[in-house]
C-alpha cells in the first residue's frame, strides 16, 4: 500500500450520477502499462483506491477501472456528500490516495499468453451498475493475454448505461440489460445468462445480483466475485468490513474484495 497525492487529469460525466476521473500518478511511469509484461507496481483488476475528501472523515473506497504507466482511471457514482463534492473537482486539483488496496482478481489459472488454453478459455464477465468499472480492467487484461471474454452489463435504465462502447472496442462480445428495458434486454443480468457458453465466471455488483448470478451459474464452475462493504480504514486495521467465508472470517479490504465462488457464504 502506498499513500500518494494524485492530480486530477480529467473528469467527465458518463451517465446518471456517474463520473469518470483520470488521476495522474506522482511519478511518471510508476505503473506497468497493461500491455507490458514486466511489472513495476504490481496492480490487478479488482483492486481499489481509498480517497480522502475534504469535508468527509472517512476515506471513500473506489475500484480501479483501468490504468496506464502514468494514470489510474476510476468510475464512481455520486452516492453522498463526499462523492458529490468529488464530482465537482477540477482538472489539476489533487487527491490524497491510499492504493492499491485489496487482493484483485486472480488470473493465474489463465496460463501463458497465447497458449492453447488461453484461446479455448471462455470466461463470462458480469458487471452490475457501480460493479461495471473493475470488469473493464479485467476484460482488458484478459483480452491482452489472448482470451476472448463475454460480457454482460446490467443497469437500471438507459440513462445509467456507461462503457458499453469501451468494452466493444476491446473486442469483447457485450450483452446489455436494463431493468426497465429502455436499452438492451429488459430484465436483470441473470436473464442474459441463458444460452451463453462459458466455463468460468467473474462478477461485480450489488450483493443480491451476485447471489442471483451464483444461483444461475452451474454449480462447481470456477468463479470469482467482488464484494462491497462499508469500510473504516481500507487496509485491514479496523475490522469494519469483515465477512464470513467457508474458510473463516475475511476482511473485504485485504483478503477481498474478490472472493472465490467456492468460499462464499450467502
Amino acid at each position: 500500500m502506498k499513500n500518494d497525492i494524485m492530480t486530477i487529469q480529467s473528469q467527465r460525466r458518463l451517465a446518471e450520477e456517474t463520473y469518470e476521473m483520470v488521476l495522474q500518478l506522482p511519478h511518471a511511469g510508476a505503473l506497468t502499462a497493461a500491455h507490458t509484461p514486466a511489472q513495476k507496481q504490481h496492480i490487478l483488476p479488482g483492486q481499489f483506491l481509498n480517497i480522502r475528501l475534504d469535508g468527509s472523515y472517512l476515506r471513500r473506497p473506489i475500484s480501479i477501472c483501468e490504468w496506464t504507466e502514468d494514470t489510474l482511471t476510476i468510475i464512481y457514482k455520486t452516492v453522498g456528500r463526499g462523492t458529490t463534492k468529488m464530482s465537482r473537482m477540477q482538472t489539476g486539483e489533487k487527491l490524497d490516495v491510499l492504493w492499491p488496496l485489496g487482493n484483485g482478481y486472480d488470473l493465474s489459472s489463465f496460463g501463458e499468453s497465447g497458449s492453447v488454453s488461453q484461446s479455448a478459455a471462455q470466461p463470462l464477465l458480469i458487471g452490475g451498475g457501480a460493479g461495471v468499472p473493475p470488469m473493464f480492467g479485467l476484460c482488458r487484461k484478459l483480452v491482452e493475454t489472448g482470451v476472448q471474454p463475454k460480457v454482460i452489463l446490467g443497469f437500471r435504465s438507459a440513462a445509467d448505461v456507461f462503457y458499453r462502447n469501451e468494452f466493444e472496442t476491446l473486442g469483447a462480445e457485450v450483452i446489455l440489460t436494463t431493468e426497465d428495458g429502455s436499452a438492451g434486454i429488459k430484465g436483470f443480468v441473470t436473464d442474459a445468462m441463458d444460452g451463453i457458453c462459458y466455463d468460468s465466471l467473474f462478477a461485480c455488483g450489488p450483493e443480491a445480483m451476485l447471489q442471483a448470478v451464483d444461483e444461475k451459474a452451474p454449480a462447481g464452475m470456477p468463479g470469482q466475485m467482488s464484494f462491497e462493504r462499508r469500510m473504516g480504514c481500507g487496509f485491514g486495521a479496523c475490522m469494519g468490513c469483515s465477512c464470513r467465508t467457508k474458510y473463516g472470517s475475511k476482511r473485504i479490504c485485504v483478503e477481498g474484495p474478490v472472493l472465490e465462488r467456492s468460499e462464499i457464504v450467502w
Partner: peptide, 23 residues
C-alpha cells in the same frame, strides 16, 4: 469472535461510528 453483522461503520461529522463488536 466474529463480531457483529455488517455494516459496522458509519460516517459522521468529524468522526465515525463503529459496531465491530470485538472481532
Amino acid at each position: 469472535r466474529f463480531g457483529n453483522e455488517t455494516p459496522r461503520i458509519a460516517e459522521c461529522t468529524e468522526g465515525m461510528l463503529n459496531s465491530v463488536g470485538l472481532q
